[in-house]
Write a protein that binds this DNA or RNA. Structure first.
Ligand code: MN
Ligand code: MN
Ligand code: ZN
Ligand code: ZN
Lengths: 150, 150
DNA sequence: ACTGATGTTGACAATCATTATCAATAGACC
DNA sequence: GGTCTATTGATAATGATTGTCAACATCAGT
């Protein structure tokens, strides 16, 4: 059966004490910094377990790193994530749930799951960046710095 | 300035000739198999360029691989992807666009982008799997094989 | 509390996708 | 054709994640 170890508890607590999403590597560093001798492989295993039981959410960062976050809401939900500071807001999305189910069905798909995450700049980071932008409003004549999300 | 090379064209065509999403590695293999001596690094570069100009969509597979697909629709859109055969349907989602914008605004977020993809089993793969399931309906007493998407 | 079976750990090696190097090559323009 | 330089590609380097396996710790049974 599944045994209780201080390692798993340490990971759970460290994750709880983290505001937004964090990588396995970063969480391991944080644990080490706070004096814990936990192994890296164990952190990976613990995070994987938490994610598979629904106690944590996981998502794939744009550069291919797996990120984890303690899940406060028990049910199914999605995230609004600050791409600068990592602040994460959990959001319900009934409309989107219905939409996903419907569009899958319309195309004959079964066992539909979905990935729905919104990225942006939180209010604080927006304010901070606005200041920086004004400070260098001269060099760049080309204003297009946008990306091409799908 | 940007130069035209047969390599970039080869990648574009290979991607066009692919039904669903494909990884850089797989596309490189496919090109080699068809006799092209193109280098792996070049495939990575070409795909990155296509994605950054919006000519291709990219998404991060659950196991952290970057997948690319030639984009038929020019505008913003999303995907319905068969997790078994890779068949991909491009879908417009005005509801979701509005929802994402609204929820971001409600929380003070700016510069909102979003990731919205639906995964499932396409009609064909569903039929194929149904056959396989019936053939082994005895060993497994535990029927829960579901995951915990966020 | 002791003990045995076995789930768990962690140092380390192994994978594997992706990126960085950098000398050789080949477009674009004259 | 000649020059300039963006591009290529073989290869090494990076970095996250997983596999290995002997040592260890948990816990049900006693
Ligand atoms: Mn969550
Ligand atoms: Mn697309
Ligand atoms: Zn922020
Ligand atoms: Zn399919």
């Amino acid at each position: 059966m599944k045994r209780n170890t201080w390692q798993r508890e340490a990971v759970r607590e460290a994750l709880d004490g983290t505001g937004g999403f964090i990588s396995a590597q970063a969480l391991h560093s944080a644990l080490h910094a706070s004096g814990s001798p936990i192994g890296l492989a164990t952190v990976y295993r613990a995070l994987g377990d938490l994610a598979s039981t629904g106690e944590a959410d996981s998502l794939q960062s744009p550069d291919g790193e797996a990120l984890y976050r303690a899940c406060s809401t028990t049910g199914h939900h999605h995230h609004l994530i600050c791409r600068n500071c990592g602040l994460t807001v959990e959001i319900a999305a009934d409309e989107v749930e219905a939409w996903a189910k419907r569009v899958a069905g319309e195309h004959g798909f079964t066992g539909a799951a979905h990935v729905v995450d919104v990225f942006g700049l939180c209010a604080d980071c927006t304010a901070a960046q606005r200041g920086a932008d004004e400070r260098r409003a001269d060099a760049t004549a080309n204003g297009s710095s946008s990306s091409h999300p799908a």
